[in-house]
Design a protein around this nucleic acid. Structure first.
Length: 456
DNA sequence: ATAGGGTTAG
């Protein structure tokens, strides 16, 4: 009895060190315990494995598993679930499947958590059919699905483009008398909104209000983002002030959503206020937050501060990504520093981001606006992938320079690539050709545009 | 455990 109690205490102690990411202290406690005659048990090792998965990855966790077996302790379903979660987090599908296999071979029955994790992994890798098979297995087996099963399903269906199925599953739950959790509502509202189904999203939001759940900060951030995404800026700002006045705590997500929208609206001063508040409140900055802040600095022309943050990212052990570089390049272009932008673009290419389409688009647009159209054309020709942004910048600028035949050529290759381009852009080219006397060219272009519409 | 945040043209 005394022994069991001690092991429990040992495990509680180890769990708190693991949670604080002090794994060497956890190990030291194990050694002390052994010295005192208190041996680690399966819970001890499971705690360690879970923490290793989280902080150091699956390989580290597997070496703990090895030590566990050496110590003569057999893994159980919890052990495997931790390993599965680690593998799923890193999208290591084949590892997930291997773990399932060895679990079965060891005679350990997977539980709902195991299945949920596998399902989530399939969804994350864009394999909704496989995920659905797992879901069916849960239903057909004598395990019963838990609320997370449905949340993972609804989220996965939304993320993979099956919004209607997600909505259907949600309604099915309600028909069976199950009360959806707040998470479920949040998942569905976000999914519907991203699919452009604003009416349905609003309906679910209303139902959430009638459900007895209190919306949380995530609900507010989600809905706010929905408004901004659909360019309903005033409504988004209303939700922002409601969130503030109701005393919700802002985390990095809420701040970044608000700051990003304010920058887009040109409210740089307000964006800066929120930025200062965010830092003052001690929000730990991750890469997305850094990028958001760098964007604010760029848009207010404070490139010293922007580049300082760039250094801070790297010295803090994070790595700039394509967003960081795009924000810098676009910022320099918009501030009229074309040479600086070109320099950063070259630098970006040398460090391996040479297929950053958005950054190239920003550079093209910047060159165009600076009147360096030929330079922009050269860059355009060197690009392997182009999209409608690329074409729109160039076509508009060529029209401005009254080079309508060149614009027409580009417009055609854009349409031939199956890319959508605004009617107003097409009309700019057509009208330009007509007004400058190229009537037959205009006619030809118009019929080709019509043909293109039929084909795509 | 499952939910929310960052970049470009007109």
């Amino acid at each position: 009895m005394v022994y069991r109690l001690s092991t429990r205490l040992l495990n509680i102690c180890i769990a708190s060190f693991c949670k604080a990411q002090q794994l060497e202290k956890a190990e030291a406690v194990i050694i002390d315990g052994i010295r005192l005659g208190v041996l680690p048990d399966v819970v001890t090792y499971n705690t360690l494995i879970d923490a290793h998965c989280y902080f150091f990855g699956t390989d580290a966790a597997h070496s703990v598993l090895y030590r566990m077996r050496e110590a003569g302790i057999s893994p159980n379903v919890v052990t495997y679930n931790s390993l599965l979660a680690g593998a799923a987090r890193n999208c290591l599908l084949s590892l997930c499947l291997d773990l399932f296999e060895s679990m079965l071979q060891a005679g350990i029955h997977p539980d709902v958590w195991s299945y949920n994790t596998l399902m989530h992994c399939f969804f994350k890798l864009g394999k909704p059919d496989e995920a659905y098979k797992v879901f069916r297995d849960i239903i057909l087996s004598n395990l019963s699905p838990d609320p997370s099963t449905f949340n993972i399903m609804i989220n996965g269906l939304c993320k993979n483009g099956y919004t209607d199925n997600a909505l259907g599953l949600f309604r099915n739950l309600q028909r069976h008398g199950l009360v959806p959790e707040l998470v479920t509502y949040n998942i569905l509202i976000n999914g519907l909104c991203k699919a452009g189904r604003l009416g349905a999203a609003r309906r679910i939001l209303k139902e959430l209000g009638e459900s007895g759940h209190q919306p949380n900060a995530i609900t507010y951030t989600t809905v706010m983002k929905c408004c901004f995404r659909s360019r309903q800026f005033e409504q988004g700002l209303d939700i922002l002030s409601e969130m503030k006045s109701k005393g919700y705590t802002f985390d990095g997500f809420a701040y970044c959503t608000s700051i990003g929208a304010l920058v887009k609206m040109g409210k740089i001063k307000e964006a800066n206020d929120y930025m200062e508040q965010m830092v003052r409140n001690g929000i730990e900055l991750d890469l997305v937050s850094y990028n958001t802040l760098i964007n604010v600095y760029c848009k207010e022309g404070n490139f010293v501060a922007a580049f300082n943050l760039l250094d801070e990212i790297e010295s803090g052990g994070l790595e700039c990504d394509k967003y960081t570089h795009t924000i810098i390049i676009d910022g320099l272009c918009k501030a009229g520093n074309i040479e600086g932008a070109q320099r950063h673009l070259n630098y970006m290419n040398t460090i391996g981001f040479d297929s950053n389409l958005v950054a190239f688009n920003c550079m093209i647009d910047g060159l165009c606006k600076a009147g360096l159209t030929d330079h922009a054309m050269k860059l355009f020709e060197s690009m392997e992938v182009k999209d409608s942004f690329t074409y729109t910048s160039l076509v508009h600028n060529l029209c401005r320079e009254r080079r309508f035949r060149c614009a027409s050529k580009l417009l055609l290759s854009c349409l031939k690539g199956g890319m959508k381009i605004l009617r107003s852009t097409q009309h700019a080219v057509l009208d330009g050709l007509r007004c400058s006397g190229y009537t037959s060219e205009a006619r030809k272009l118009r019929s080709k545009i019509r043909l293109g519409r039929l084909l795509h």
